[in-house]
Computed example of a mutant assay.
Amino acid sequence: MTTPDTRRRRARLGLFLLATVLAALTVFPLLWMVTGAFKGPGEVGGTNLLPQSPTLDNFDYVFTQVPFLRYLLNSFFVSAVVTVIALFFHSMAAYALARLRFPGRDRIFLFIFATLLITFPAVLVPLFVIVRELGMLNSYAGLIVPAIFNAFGIFLLRQFYITLPTELEEAAKIDGAGYWRIYFSVILPLSRPIMSALAVFFFLANWNSFIWPLVITGDQELNVVQLGIASFQQQYSGKWEYVITAAAVAAVPTMLLFVFFQRQIVESIKTAGIK
């Protein structure tokens, strides 16, 4: 007869084995990609993870024979600018929807939240027409401006602001602070954890963007890193070591961001419950 302690130990063991299998399935493609970047011609398709003769020739080719560094800088510039501007405007919108009282506030929030149900392909054509009419095709503005608005950021920040104690704002009002002073001196300093997590989400979303840059840019000087990797697949379809090397280089910033901000990401997800 099994005891409750035995059943709990078996349950923990089963969960541990399941987590181990899921972790292995997640890490294996990444490990294969990283090790493949150091393999020579003809070794990438093999089943052996470790390269027979590690080489840096693939990295040398990627950065010297094609403008891959330019692609990286374009992605970094677009992602950083979108992240900074989006956090600024989203935090103001979320603060107004969470703290200020005005007619139609809840309906506006529901309308913004409902946009999360609309997929990007559904608005791709209208968005392209608007950008074309504004003369932003083949420009950094065309890459940046449409990516600024994100209902998820407003939703997550609003949920966080609702959890803040109202006594802080009341004390600031007693001291004579207005809404702008409260926002900059009280709300923003308290928002650093959630803003850090959102910065990671926004940066990664724009770093991995492919469809929108492909649609509005035709100039190679404006290619982002994902378009650069796609061009590698077209030009070097028989030389997968170059494609894998480019993909490994593009994955480095995303891995670093997760390593440094994983705690903020987990905390932001915990605070996203609807109140």
Rank of each mutant, 00 (worst) to 15 (best):
A250L: 00
Y61T: 01
T166S: 13
P103F: 08
Q220S: 12
G14T: 02
T271V: 15
P29L: 14
L117Q: 06
N208Q: 10
L69S: 14
A171T: 11
R101Q: 06
G104L: 08
G238M: 06
L198S: 14
Y71P: 08
F210G: 06
L143H: 04
V123F: 00
G176A: 04
A114F: 09
L134H: 02
F38S: 04
F28C: 07
W207G: 11
T119F: 00
L190D: 05
L22S: 15
F261P: 07
I265D: 11
G228N: 12
E241Q: 13
A177Q: 13
R105Q: 11
G40D: 05
D5Y: 10
F149L: 04
L214S: 13
R12K: 10
T245Y: 06
V82P: 12
T163K: 10
L30V: 13
L188F: 02
L50H: 07
N206T: 14
P4W: 15
D5R: 12
L227I: 13
A230K: 06
L134A: 09
L73C: 12
W32M: 04
G135R: 03
A37N: 02
P189K: 08
Q220I: 09
V129P: 15
R9S: 15
A96R: 09
H90D: 15
M1S: 02
T55H: 03
S191N: 09
S91V: 00
L214P: 13
M136H: 09
L257C: 07
F149H: 01
T3R: 01
L256V: 15
L18G: 08
G45E: 02
M33H: 03
L100H: 01
P41E: 11
Y71G: 10
Y71E: 13
Q226H: 00
Y61W: 12
P103V: 00
F59H: 05
A19T: 12
K39G: 05
M255A: 12
I162H: 11
N150Q: 13
T6N: 03
L97Q: 05
I162R: 15
F28L: 15
A93V: 11
F63H: 01
A272Y: 07
Q220E: 13
S91T: 02
V125W: 00
F88Q: 08
L168N: 05
E170N: 14
P67F: 12
L117T: 11
A250G: 03
I265Y: 11
S91F: 01
L72G: 06
I148S: 07
F128I: 02
Y140E: 01
F111D: 00
L100F: 09
R99Q: 09
P165W: 10
Q262V: 07
F63T: 08
L13Y: 07
I130L: 06
E241P: 03
G14L: 04
T2C: 02
D60I: 06
R70Y: 05
L17T: 09
W212P: 04
F203N: 07
I108C: 08
S139L: 05
R7T: 00
V125Q: 00
F152L: 08
A80V: 14
V225D: 10
R105C: 09
R105I: 09
E241C: 06
S139H: 06
D175G: 10
L15F: 14
F102P: 01
P193C: 11
L227Y: 09
A171W: 08
E241W: 12
N206K: 12
T55D: 03
